[in-house]
């Protein structure tokens, strides 16, 4: 067991094939300086390095919008799809290829507006995938239109007098769906929490939904200013089953012990707007996972032909 030469050899071998975070960067992100998408990309790269995932064994699926350029910047297989439809594509990929780790990246318009129908059903399918909602409260790529998550009263090109409706809360919506299995919230200005949350989402088997709060430097630079300036306005949800990033207790005074298995408390906390809450709201690993319940054993072409003959016997005249 203590044979030094052999373990040295192995170490060398491991070291040569070890990928670091930057190995997962394919191209430089072409987002605006200060865009929250960079933070998400960095956290994802760190996660991939930590997990040592092979580039060919991952699929990053996105829709349309600034954040949906994400797959172009990751060293993995990627599918940059159409607006609002990342989730059906990702579902198809996972059903066909359960061996792949599937990641989905959507913006707030993509997921909660044009793709809202798919979002509800994908939550219910609970297909095993890590789902990132990059929520900057605005349509950026089309240049400053109100999105469902834009705060009420916030002005944009389509709401010059301010958004007329209360913002849609993606956490409340997801937590309301039957068979939802993982719902978390994090923020681009707390990188340690962002990384730890993505790790927890990746570790969870099922539809792991993470809302990442972020700012658009062009159109919503100030949406979270108060929270960024004053950590006391943010409450961390902590639990041994939750997100536990080292050092955060020094930054945030408000901490709440919240058991992610408690759906009622999760919904109540999502509804309360007194403080901004980051952490895992809900997690249940015992719910049906769609790609698992739909898995069928492979059948060889020869066997298929034999079975087809029997099928045709039913129609024989």
């Amino acid at each position: 067991m203590s044979s030094i030469p052999i373990s040295l050899l192995e170490l060398e071998d491991d070291a040569s094939s070890c990928l670091v975070a930057d190995d997962y960067q394919k191209k430089e992100g072409k987002w605006c300086a200060g865009c929250g998408d960079f933070g998400a990309l960095n956290a994802v790269k760190r996660l991939l390095a930590k997990e040592q995932l092979k580039p060919e064994k991952m699929a990053f699926v996105s829709g349309i919008g600034c954040s949906s350029r994400f797959p172009h910047y990751v060293n993995a297989y990627g599918f940059h799809g159409i607006h609002g439809r990342a989730l059906p594509i990702a579902t198809g990929v996972k059903l066909a290829r359960p061996d792949l780790d599937v990641f989905v990246v959507m913006g707030d318009g993509d997921c909660t507006s044009i793709g809202a129908g798919h979002w509800i059903h994908a939550t219910r399918y609970n297909t095993n995938m890590t789902v990132l909602l990059l929520d900057n409260n605005i349509y950026g790529l089309t240049k400053n239109q109100t999105s469902p998550t834009t705060p009420q009263g916030y002005t944009s090109n389509t709401s010059p007098k301010g958004s007329v409706l209360p913002a849609l809360d993606p956490l409340q919506a997801t937590l309301g769906v039957s068979n939802a299995s993982f719902v978390a919230q994090t923020a681009d200005w707390v990188p340690a929490h962002l990384y730890a949350t993505l790790q927890a989402a990746f570790d969870h088997k099922g539809f792991s939904f993470v809302r990442i709060l972020q700012r658009c430097p062009k159109f919503t630079p100030d949406v979270f200013t108060e929270n960024v300036k004053n950590p006391d306005l943010t409450e961390l949800l902590v639990h041994e089953e939750g997100v536990n990033a080292p050092g955060l207790d020094k930054l945030f005074k408000a901490m709440r012990e919240h058991d992610p298995k408690n759906i009622d408390e999760a919904r109540a906390l999502a509804q309360r707007k007194d403080l901004l809450r980051l952490g895992i709201f809900f997690k249940d690993s015992n719910l049906p996972v769609y790609d698992e319940i739909r898995a069928v054993p492979p059948v060889s072409p020869e066997e298929k032909v034999q079975r087809l003959e029997k099928e045709f016997d039913r129609y024989a005249v």
Binding site: F79, I89, G92, H118
Partner: peptide, 29 residues
């Protein structure tokens, strides 16, 4: 019995999307 499934999607659009995703994954859907 032939190693496949019928996926009843939430709408016509998603039905196409899931098929396309599966095809992308290597099954001609």
């Amino acid at each position: 019995n032939y190693g496949g499934i019928v996926h009843q999607a939430e709408d016509e659009i998603a039905a196409a999307g899931v098929a396309l995703g599966a095809s992308y994954g290597g099954k001609v859907a």
